[in-house]
Design a protein around this nucleic acid. Sequence first.
DNA 1: GATGAATGAGGATTCATTCAT
DNA 2: AATGAATGAATCCTCATTCAT
Lengths: 209, 209, 209, 209
Amino acid sequence: MEKAKRKEKEFLFRRQEILEEAERMFAAKGFHATTMAEIAQGAGFAIGTLYQFFQGKEDLYVSMVTEKLQLMYQEIRGAVQAREDTLQKVDALVSTYFLFVENNADFCTFFIRSDGATLPDVSNALREQMIEAYLGQIQFIEEIINKGIEDGIFQPGKARDYAFALSGIIRGIIFDWLVGAHQGSLTGKTGLVTDIFLRGVLVDQNNKR
Amino acid sequence: MEKAKRKEKEFLFRRQEILEEAERMFAAKGFHATTMAEIAQGAGFAIGTLYQFFQGKEDLYVSMVTEKLQLMYQEIRGAVQAREDTLQKVDALVSTYFLFVENNADFCTFFIRSDGATLPDVSNALREQMIEAYLGQIQFIEEIINKGIEDGIFQPGKARDYAFALSGIIRGIIFDWLVGAHQGSLTGKTGLVTDIFLRGVLVDQNNKR
Amino acid sequence: MEKAKRKEKEFLFRRQEILEEAERMFAAKGFHATTMAEIAQGAGFAIGTLYQFFQGKEDLYVSMVTEKLQLMYQEIRGAVQAREDTLQKVDALVSTYFLFVENNADFCTFFIRSDGATLPDVSNALREQMIEAYLGQIQFIEEIINKGIEDGIFQPGKARDYAFALSGIIRGIIFDWLVGAHQGSLTGKTGLVTDIFLRGVLVDQNNKR
Amino acid sequence: MEKAKRKEKEFLFRRQEILEEAERMFAAKGFHATTMAEIAQGAGFAIGTLYQFFQGKEDLYVSMVTEKLQLMYQEIRGAVQAREDTLQKVDALVSTYFLFVENNADFCTFFIRSDGATLPDVSNALREQMIEAYLGQIQFIEEIINKGIEDGIFQPGKARDYAFALSGIIRGIIFDWLVGAHQGSLTGKTGLVTDIFLRGVLVDQNNKR
DNA sequence: GATGAATGAGGATTCATTCAT
DNA sequence: AATGAATGAATCCTCATTCAT
């Protein structure tokens, strides 16, 4: 069916346009301060049309955030899975994370700092959904770490804590970059992050780095 | 003036009651979903009375958050400054942070995960203020680290990055605890956090820990 | 032209299907709460198709009601005209009315109690139309009564009032039956109604019935 | 408490003003076509003020109708109970009904014809409430009739049917008057109505009236 | 003829804030 | 100082109707 296919494609295209406009708006003004009318106008549609693609404002918001996060997680996973070596996986994890943030600074500015979970005014059900997505990402990191533990390069027993720690370091550095007017290269800090995560900050008396 | 003093005291007392009710409400329902009427009712005052203590809803919200954060930062600083040794300062930083979170889980649940900075719907001016508070905290950590660098125990040159990293690790572990139904002791993870921060996660070939 | 005829027939058939679905919907949910989309879906047509048969929602509503009423009036007139005797005409009027209600309880439940005239939200022009239909029915009853007056069996001078009175009695009894969960036979009350209308409720001292 | 009393009085006064404006509006344009803004404006209040007296539009509508009906029923009951004799009670019932309609033609025009029960678009719960009110009135009439049966002046066994019949006759005549541009006196038709109800329309061969 | 995606006007309701008492 | 009734701006969403395919 050629026709059905083209319709499907057009539908997805329009949907994407709306999502992109929504991202701009929400990022700039937040959830409540952004009106459906503005998004519609910005995307070049009538208000009612938005409701053919999304159930309502909240659905639009959550769809936008969820899909963007999904994209980020996908990119990260893809990059990580392309590596064999555990240390390289960690490196890919951090650098891909940073790369995504550099390329999506607006979105991240209003969202990433929330640990992927703060939606003070959005329904709890949706909040859960986003926490879950974040926890999925944590689990993914945990698996990498577990692999490293099996290989004898990471200390055993604390994989989940390490995952949160690594994620925390990454987010900390990202936050710095985001509020700091995006100075310098974020990806350039990959080595710094992995270094802290792997070897800590202490001066190693026996084995200078 | 005895009288003026008592008035002052009563004023502060009332103000505090409002703040506490506001904290409960905002933590439970978020900024927008909480109404001034609810807070007034909960605190046992008339709506109009709230406006004698705070300029408006936003002011009330920000005051609550700011003062709570201030309290947290104060506690942390107090504990840190009570130690001489840099490593003990780091330890105090982490454990006091954790202690505060354990004692203020509700507040932290809705707020700390925001890196102390996400207020999607609150005016930018206020957001800046909160980011600033967070950056103040970062700077405080940075100073500890600089001290450690001077003492030759931390690697030089990256104090600010280290500060964000440490803050990130702490927040990561806190997040885990908050969404994980507060299982186990958070303060009990102090050693874990400092360990990661100081020595990293790698198995040290030359110098087993 | 065979073809044109078949088309005509199909057109009428489709139209009828839409009307029947509309009747179900409107009876169940009222005018405003029923959407064109629902009717279209229920009737198995596309929304746009409805507009080939009816000018709009209001037209559809009014057509449905009007035609249903027309049907009722037709049945009643047919039955009445089949009788010669005036008293038998009255009897036929009442019993056919009741019969129709029994067979169209859903429609009547939402409509008949309105005296065939209450459409609080439908345009005045249409309201007039329906009042007129009702008045037509009254006039028809009036004519029966006038015949009876000519025959010397009804008291003269009040034919129109009598028509409203008879119609009122019928509607009163119907209302009772409709809200009373349709208990018992409505047609079985024909004698009761005609009795009240003809002889009143007083015990006749001279002439026991 | 003088003050509380005056407040109460003022509250009731404002509420009544809103109800009266609502009655005008709803009677003129129907439920859906009337906006809260119009009522507020007409009553000289801000929109929000309406919500201090009524939960919402529907509540306002139902309150208006319910209270008006209550008033009508009260007047009727009062007049009926002031009479001793059953036939005089019937007379008072009809004439007071008519009097109320004459004095509240607007309200009745849009409502009475509905048998006190048609609210096509208002929630079912409320519809039930109004049907109940109507049935209460029927029961009241039924009791009068039962008294007459005990006294041996009405034919036994059909009190409820008679009540609906009498109510039906009254409504039928009212409808005529309402749609007929209010020609002539409605109360003047009291005798006509009681005559039909009591003695029917047949010419009585033995006992001329 | 049939379709159904797009349109956008229209309104109920909420709630922070004010100010007369 | 405390009150809380009154205010009214601001916005989400529905759904009848159209028209390009």
